[in-house]
């Protein structure tokens, strides 16, 4: 069964306290090469087909429920 991936990320201009917390922990663990971390969400949607109508529906789901367009951007891609 095909799978569609929706990635949701905080918009670049929106503060990401979780990413900051992760980034802040890295030096304590001995990792010094990473200059920034931003944390988002990944959704895996199982679908019957990946035709145009289905992908349009997934985009609608991503826009109305999976992300909040005020603070987040999303991308949709078919896996495989």
């Amino acid at each position: 069964m095909p799978r569609v991936i929706v990635d949701v990320m905080p918009k670049p201009e929106i503060l990401d306290p979780q990413g900051k917390a992760v980034h802040g922990a890295l030096p304590r663990l001995g990792f010094h090469g990473i200059t920034d971390v931003r944390q988002g969400k990944r959704f895996e949607l199982e679908v019957d087909t990946t035709d145009e109508a289905t992908l349009a529906e997934v985009a609608k789901v991503a826009e109305t429920l999976l992300s909040n367009p005020v603070i987040e951007d999303y991308t949709v891609r078919v896996e495989g």
Partner: peptide, 17 residues
Amino acid sequence: LCESHLLPGALIRNDHR
């Protein structure tokens, strides 16, 4: 109310976490 679009903007995690 913000998620419902009855009010603009959004609420995010406190800056001091």
